[in-house]
Computed example of a mutant assay.
Amino acid sequence: MDGRDKPGHDEHFYLREAGAASMRVRTEIWVRAYLRRCQAEAIPVYVGRRGDEAAGAVFICVNRLDGTVALYGPAPAGLAETETERRWVSLFGGKPVGVAEVQVYLARQWDFDPDVWVLELEDRAGRHLLGDLIIEGEG
């Protein structure tokens, strides 16, 4: 009896113990699901830049339609919770900034990693639908 039949057991423990690699959903699949979710909430969204289908980093720009944009990017690598699920940080200290500032930031990201995706939403309320996937205190 290895404890797997007991309530509350952590089946992922056995996978980690066996040395199985953590797997994350392919970026293209995650993007498609995110686009559908935004569309279901009537938030206009489009792919501003298409990156690597398997593992490209994703940045989410929320245009508040007042000349400002909130930008969300991938959480730093190495955090335990980022191994299988995408986590996010609010960039620019969590404050909306001008479009030009976001464009400069993203251009630097593209120079560093040409496989980056950029998703652009338009929402006056600033909704991003990332919920509790944002890690506070970063950016």
Rank of each mutant, 00 (worst) to 15 (best):
M1T: 14
D2M: 05
K6S: 13
P7S: 09
G8F: 00
E11Q: 10
H12V: 14
G19T: 09
M23T: 15
M23Y: 04
R26N: 13
R26Y: 02
R26E: 11
I29F: 03
W30H: 10
V31R: 02
R32S: 13
R32K: 14
Y34E: 10
L35Q: 13
R37Y: 00
R37W: 00
V45E: 00
Y46F: 11
G51R: 06
E53H: 11
A55L: 07
G56L: 05
G56T: 08
F59A: 04
I60V: 15
C61H: 03
N63C: 06
N63F: 01
N63D: 15
D66Q: 03
Y72G: 06
G73P: 03
P76Y: 00
G78D: 08
L79T: 12
E81T: 11
R86L: 06
R86W: 06
V89L: 00
L91D: 03
F92W: 07
K95G: 07
K95Y: 04
P96H: 02
V104N: 11
L106Y: 03
A107V: 08
R108M: 05
Q109E: 09
W110A: 10
W110I: 13
D111T: 09
D113M: 02
W117R: 05
L119A: 02
L119V: 02
E120N: 06
H128M: 04
L133G: 07
G139Y: 03
